[in-house]
Each structure stands twice: as structure tokens, then as C-alpha cells.
């Protein structure tokens, strides 16, 4: 390698890494696994369900964030998600995510390869701490979703290419609750008009109003590095052209260090756009800073 190239590479590395390193020595002080992982909507939670937990590990005097890549493959679709979140003092979480749904089977017929949307989200911790409060941790969140290609959703009856979900989430960890293992329980109530989470637009011919949906999950911490659990997410059914079902999954998350988590899940997403029984493997990789 020529010296000039090395210089340039080193300079790039130094310039890009130095500020981050100077500001952030570690990912934060909250205990292992209490940041959850990142949902397909970019919010801290499980895989499908937002939790009241705030992204990463920043505690009340700290800030931090996460970067996440996720992928789910079913018989006829592939979902890719890239997301980033910032957490300020375990109080406010801001996140962005881009979802891309590859239309593996339908693509040729529709003349379009993918559906895609961007999600800009915020979450505020209202009260409590998941570990330390008897009544658990409570957060309020918004997810503003914006379709990037609205032709297909519009053709199947979606009313809008953008929508905002609102949710109230409660999370609590019960120490030594199941065979002396810690149990994390989450319940969220979401107001939404989204079709298939927004990938098929918002509102439709069957229903065009906000509806309240229950989303819940529970996980057992086998130790501080391994979590196994399940999630359930109720969904609206707004479009006449194809029914939409609730989602659920079972997951295992490995958190070898606060800086890294790897989540694998088996998810059942029901029928999507008329193609039945979309089930498959979900994998998510998260880095925390």
C-alpha cells in the first residue's frame, strides 16, 4: 500500500472514530438485557412488539444508541430492516428505520420488486423503572410511517401513504419468578390504521379509523446473556382485497456483551396480500454504543 493511501485511510478512520470515542467510553450503565432489542419498526422492544424499555443502556446521566440490521424470510416475502436509535438519559428515545419488503413471489405479476417505508419514531419514558419500580416502567411512543412506493398499496385499497401509530407500553421484570429465573413482561396498547404494519399503507375500504390493538410479550432471562420468549401482536384488518392476521413469534436473544445482541425468532405473520401462512425465520443483529 502506498504511504499516501495509508495516510488517507488512517485519517478517515481517525476523523470518523475519534469524536465518538471521545464522547462515549462505553454503552451505558443499565443492566444487561434491560435495553431489549430492536423491533422491525426501529423501536426498542422485542422483534414485533415495542416495549417500555429505552434503546441501549444509557442511564439517567448518560446517552447512547443502537444500530440494527434485521431480516425475516417467509415463503413469499423477505423483509429487511435497517435502524438506528438514540437514547437520552433513559428518558427519550428517537429512532429511524427503513423497511423493505421484497415481493419475491408477487413481484413479476405486480411489476414491482418491493414495498418500502421509513419510520421516524419517538418514545418517552413516563414513569418507573423496569427493574426497580413495583408498578414497572411506562412509556408513550409515536411511530410516524411514510411509504416510499405507494402504487401497490393504493391499488389494493389503502387510503393513505403515511400514518402515525401511538402506543402506551408497560414493562416489568419479575426477579426469580420462573424457576428462579427473571421474567420480563410487556404489554402495549397501540392506536393504528396501518395495514401490515404500514407496508400496505394506512386505512382501507373495510375500515379507515384508528383502532386499539393489544401487543404483548414475555421473556425469561436464562442468565444475563440469554433471553427466550414469545410475542403476540394484534393487527387491524382494513383492506377488502385480502385478510390480515395477528402476528406472533417465539424468540431467543443472545447478549454476550452490552455492545452486541443477536436475536433469532420464528415468526408467524399470517396471510399477507392474499398469500397464505407467511412463516419463517427472523434474525436481528444489534450494536450498542
Amino acid at each position: 500500500m502506498k504511504p499516501s493511501t495509508l495516510c488517507r485511510l488512517t485519517l478517515v478512520a481517525c476523523v470518523s472514530l475519534a469524536p465518538a470515542a471521545a464522547l462515549k467510553a462505553d454503552p451505558g450503565s443499565r443492566l444487561w438485557a434491560t435495553g431489549g432489542v430492536t423491533t422491525i419498526e426501529g423501536t426498542a422492544g422485542g422483534g414485533l412488539v415495542p416495549w417500555a424499555l429505552m434503546s441501549g443502556y444509557a442511564s439517567d446521566e448518560e446517552w447512547g444508541g443502537t444500530l440494527t440490521l434485521s431480516r425475516a424470510e417467509t415463503d413469499d416475502f423477505t423483509l429487511n430492516v435497517t435502524g438506528a436509535a438514540l437514547n437520552w438519559r433513559n428518558r427519550i428515545e428517537l429512532s429511524i428505520a427503513r423497511q423493505t419488503l421484497d415481493l419475491d413471489t408477487l413481484g413479476a405479476a405486480l411489476g414491482q420488486d418491493e414495498l418500502s417505508q421509513d419510520i421516524f419514531a419517538a418514545k418517552v419514558r413516563l414513569a418507573g423503572d423496569v427493574l426497580y419500580s413495583d408498578y414497572g416502567q411506562w412509556s408513550l411512543g409515536l411511530q410516524h410511517k411514510h411509504q416510499r412506493e405507494f402504487d401497490v398499496p393504493e391499488a389494493v385499497g389503502a387510503e393513505d401513504d403515511r400514518g402515525t401509530d401511538v402506543y402506551l407500553a408497560a414493562s416489568k421484570l419479575f426477579f426469580a419468578a420462573v424457576l428462579d429465573r427473571n421474567l420480563l413482561v410487556n404489554v402495549s396498547l397501540r392506536g393504528t390504521r396501518a395495514n401490515q404494519g404500514g407496508l400496505l399503507g394506512f386505512g382501507g375500504d373495510r375500515n379507515d379509523s384508528y383502532e386499539a390493538m393489544l401487543e404483548t410479550s414475555a421473556g425469561i432471562l436464562l442468565n444475563r446473556s440469554w433471553v427466550v420468549g414469545a410475542e403476540y401482536r394484534q393487527k387491524p384488518d382494513n383492506l377488502g382485497f385480502a385478510r390480515e392476521q395477528d402476528w406472533w413469534d417465539v424468540f431467543v436473544a443472545w447478549i454476550p456483551d452490552r455492545r452486541l445482541s443477536v436475536t433469532a425468532a420464528w415468526a408467524d405473520l399470517g396471510d399477507i396480500a392474499g398469500l397464505e401462512d407467511q412463516r419463517g425465520l427472523y434474525v436481528s443483529l444489534q450494536g450498542t454504543f
Binding site: L131, Y132, F175, A176, D180, R181, L222, R224
Partner: peptide, 17 residues
């Protein structure tokens, strides 16, 4: 053991307030 750790932590967090 993880079991004893969890049980102790469950009792100690009551001191948090």
C-alpha cells in the same frame, strides 16, 4: 448461581427508593 443471584437482587431492589 444465577438462581441465588436473582433471588438476592429481587430483595435488594426493594431498597432502591
Amino acid at each position: 448461581s444465577t438462581s441465588a443471584q436473582n433471588r438476592l437482587l429481587g430483595r435488594l431492589v426493594e431498597l432502591h427508593p
